[in-house]
Simulated scan of single mutants.
Amino acid sequence: MKRSEACSKSKLERKTIEKNRRVRMKALGFKLASIIPDGHLRKSKEFLSHLDQIDEAAAYIKIVRDRIEALKGRKAQLINSGNVTKAAIGSETLPILTVKELGFCVEVMLISGLNKNFMLGQVISIIEQEAAEVLAVNISRVGDNIVHTLHAQIKISRVGVDTLNISNRIHEMISTSSLNFS
């Protein structure tokens, strides 16, 4: 009789462990699916099975990985060719600002000197006030320059984002900051 009790306890423990594993996997699947932007989904998240949500997440991760590799290649190419340093030393004065709309994303690249006269938090605030959510910030040093690259996602895709307004507001903020630091 002791053996049958031990066997039934063992089965119950295995069932409990398996149930906990399934619950945890389900929670992790929901967490993974919540990270994927709606613009990258074929269907609404509510209508996707767990397997489809994982497939969508894997596809999105691959897109992001490819984008990162392309940007790393572009960065290396700019550094190797010296274009970043030449642009900063050339006829343009620091800081140099470019704002690009890339589908549902916005890329803001700001090249400044080592003694930058602005606060990155203010730049992020401007981007977020213009209906975009900052997802990633990358700061690199290239020679005597600092390259700030901010990637943001447009909050409302049908409205879009006004890149010219972002650019103008950041330029205004930088010129105001330069006056205060001088």
Rank of each mutant, 00 (worst) to 15 (best):
residue 1 M to S: 07
residue 2 K to G: 07
residue 3 R to T: 10
residue 3 R to S: 14
residue 4 S to C: 02
residue 7 C to I: 12
residue 8 S to F: 09
residue 9 K to M: 13
residue 12 L to T: 12
residue 13 E to S: 13
residue 14 R to V: 05
residue 15 K to F: 14
residue 15 K to C: 13
residue 16 T to K: 14
residue 17 I to N: 09
residue 17 I to R: 15
residue 18 E to K: 14
residue 21 R to C: 03
residue 25 M to Q: 10
residue 27 A to K: 14
residue 28 L to T: 01
residue 29 G to Q: 02
residue 31 K to S: 07
residue 31 K to V: 02
residue 37 P to M: 08
residue 40 H to T: 00
residue 43 K to M: 04
residue 44 S to H: 09
residue 44 S to Y: 01
residue 47 F to M: 04
residue 48 L to C: 05
residue 49 S to W: 04
residue 49 S to L: 03
residue 52 D to A: 12
residue 52 D to F: 04
residue 53 Q to C: 09
residue 53 Q to N: 04
residue 55 D to N: 12
residue 58 A to R: 08
residue 58 A to C: 06
residue 61 I to L: 09
residue 63 I to F: 10
residue 63 I to D: 07
residue 64 V to R: 07
residue 65 R to I: 04
residue 69 E to C: 06
residue 71 L to T: 03
residue 72 K to V: 05
residue 74 R to N: 08
residue 76 A to L: 14
residue 76 A to C: 02
residue 77 Q to L: 12
residue 80 N to R: 09
residue 80 N to P: 01
residue 85 T to K: 13
residue 87 A to D: 09
residue 93 T to W: 04
residue 95 P to D: 08
residue 96 I to R: 13
residue 100 K to R: 13
residue 100 K to G: 01
residue 101 E to R: 15
residue 104 F to G: 07
residue 106 V to E: 07
residue 107 E to V: 14
residue 109 M to Y: 03
residue 109 M to C: 14
residue 111 I to C: 11
residue 113 G to I: 03
residue 115 N to R: 12
residue 121 G to S: 14
residue 122 Q to Y: 02
residue 123 V to K: 12
residue 123 V to E: 10
residue 124 I to Q: 08
residue 125 S to K: 13
residue 125 S to H: 06
residue 126 I to D: 01
residue 127 I to T: 04
residue 127 I to E: 05
residue 128 E to H: 06
residue 129 Q to L: 06
residue 132 A to T: 11
residue 133 E to K: 15
residue 133 E to T: 15
residue 133 E to F: 15
residue 134 V to C: 12
residue 138 N to P: 00
residue 138 N to W: 00
residue 140 S to L: 03
residue 141 R to T: 15
residue 142 V to S: 01
residue 144 D to H: 05
residue 145 N to K: 12
residue 146 I to W: 01
residue 147 V to H: 03
residue 147 V to G: 07
residue 147 V to Q: 07
residue 147 V to K: 06
residue 147 V to S: 06
residue 148 H to Y: 15
residue 151 H to P: 00
residue 152 A to D: 01
residue 152 A to I: 10
residue 152 A to Y: 05
residue 155 K to L: 15
residue 156 I to G: 00
residue 158 R to T: 14
residue 159 V to A: 09
residue 159 V to Y: 08
residue 160 G to L: 01
residue 160 G to V: 01
residue 163 T to V: 13
residue 163 T to W: 03
residue 166 I to D: 03
residue 167 S to Q: 08
residue 167 S to A: 10
residue 168 N to V: 01
residue 172 E to D: 14
residue 175 S to P: 00
residue 175 S to T: 05
residue 175 S to C: 00
residue 178 S to L: 05
residue 178 S to P: 00
residue 179 L to Y: 08
residue 180 N to P: 00
residue 180 N to K: 14
residue 180 N to E: 09
residue 182 S to Q: 10
